[in-house]
C-alpha cells in the first residue's frame, strides 16, 4: 500500500481522536497555568496549592477505598473465575458471563438506584432488621464510605473476573492431580499451585480494578453524598463551587499519574515474572 493511501484511510479516524488528544493536552497545560480561570503564563502554583487538607484528605480517602475495594474484589473474583472455568454446560456458562458482566454494561445510575432501595434509611435491609426487632434506629449504610465501597466492589467485579478466568487456562488437571496424589490437602493445592498459576491474571485484574475505582465518579457521587470526597468528586468541586480550573487540572494530573502508574507497575511485574518463569 502506498503512503498516501495509508494516510488517507487513517485520516478520518485520527481526526475523530484529535479532540481527545487535545483534551489531554489541554488539562496538562492548564495544570501549569498561573491564572486559576484561564491558561496564562507558567507556574507550579496549582500543584503547590494541592498541599491543603481538602485535597490530601480526598487523596487518602481515594487510596483507602480503591485499595479496600481491590482486595475485596479479588477475594470474590478468584472463586467466581474458578467456578466459571469448571462449568461445563454452555447455557450455564453464558448465563454466568452475562450476570457477571452486568455491572459493567448497565448504567451506573440505574445500579445505584438498586443500592439506594436496598440500603437506604427506609430500604429493604433496614426495614427487615427493624421488623425482626434487631435494631431500633436505621443503620446508615449509604452516603458514607461503606456504601461507596459496596458500589465500587460491585461495579469493578467483572474487570477482575475476566483476566483471572483467562489465567485459569494455565492450570491443567495434571498440576492439581500431581499435588493431590502426593497427599496435599485441597487448601494446600489452592495456595501452592492454583494461586501462583493465577498470579498474572490476579495482578492485571487488581491493577485495572484499582485504577478504575481510584478514578470513580458516578458511584461516590450517587452513593457517597457530600461526605465521601473521592478524587473524582473533589475535582468536580474545584470546578463547580470553587471555579479553580487550574487546581482541578492539577488534581486531575495527580489522578492520572496515580492510575497510569499503577497500571504500568502491574504491567512491568507481570512481564518480569513471565520472563523469569521462562528462564527457570
Amino acid at each position: 500500500m502506498s503512503k498516501t493511501k495509508i494516510l488517507l484511510l487513517c485520516f478520518p479516524a485520527l481526526l475523530t481522536i484529535t479532540p481527545f488528544l487535545a483534551a489531554c493536552f489541554f488539562i496538562f497545560r492548564f495544570s501549569f497555568s498561573a491564572n486559576q480561570g484561564a491558561i496564562e503564563g507558567f507556574s507550579f502554583t496549582p500543584y503547590l496549592e494541592l498541599a491543603d487538607p481538602f485535597f490530601i484528605r480526598s487523596l487518602l480517602t481515594t487510596f483507602k477505598l480503591a485499595s479496600f475495594s481491590t482486595v475485596i474484589v479479588i477475594v470474590l473474583a478468584i472463586p467466581l473465575a474458578l467456578v466459571m472455568a469448571t462449568v461445563q454446560k454452555p447455557w450455564l456458562r453464558r448465563l454466568l458471563s452475562v450476570a457477571i458482566l452486568m455491572p459493567m454494561i448497565l448504567n451506573l445510575l440505574i445500579q445505584s438506584y438498586g443500592w439506594i432501595i436496598l440500603l437506604g434509611p427506609t430500604g429493604v435491609l433496614n426495614t427487615s432488621l427493624r421488623e425482626l426487632g434487631l435494631i431500633s434506629r436505621p443503620i446508615m449504610l449509604l452516603f458514607n464510605e461503606s456504601g461507596v465501597l459496596l458500589g465500587l466492589v460491585q461495579t469493578a467485579l467483572p474487570l477482575a473476573v475476566f483476566p483471572i478466568l483467562t489465567a485459569t487456562r494455565n492450570i491443567s488437571e495434571e498440576h492439581i492431580e500431581a499435588a493431590c496424589v502426593n497427599g496435599a490437602s485441597h487448601w494446600r493445592c489452592f495456595f501452592d499451585i492454583t494461586l501462583p498459576l493465577l498470579k498474572p491474571g490476579i495482578i492485571s485484574g487488581a491493577s485495572i480494578v484499582f485504577a478504575y475505582n481510584a478514578s470513580a465518579f458516578a458511584i461516590p457521587l450517587l452513593l457517597g453524598g457530600r461526605r465521601v470526597q473521592m478524587l473524582g468528586v473533589a475535582i468536580r468541586d474545584y470546578i463547580s463551587p470553587l471555579f479553580n480550573w487550574s487546581g482541578a487540572a492539577a488534581a486531575g494530573m495527580v489522578l492520572i499519574a496515580l492510575t497510569i502508574g499503577v497500571l504500568a507497575l502491574a504491567n512491568y511485574l507481570t512481564q518480569r515474572w513471565t520472563v523469569t518463569e521462562y528462564q527457570s
Binding site: P19, F20, C24, I27, A211, S215, F217, G232, I260
Partner: peptide, 15 residues
C-alpha cells in the same frame, strides 16, 4: 479506555 472519565469530562468542559 484507560483515561479517567472524570478528567475527560472536565477537560472537554474546560475546552
Amino acid at each position: 479506555l484507560v483515561f479517567p472519565l472524570v478528567i475527560l469530562g472536565i477537560a472537554f468542559l474546560l475546552i
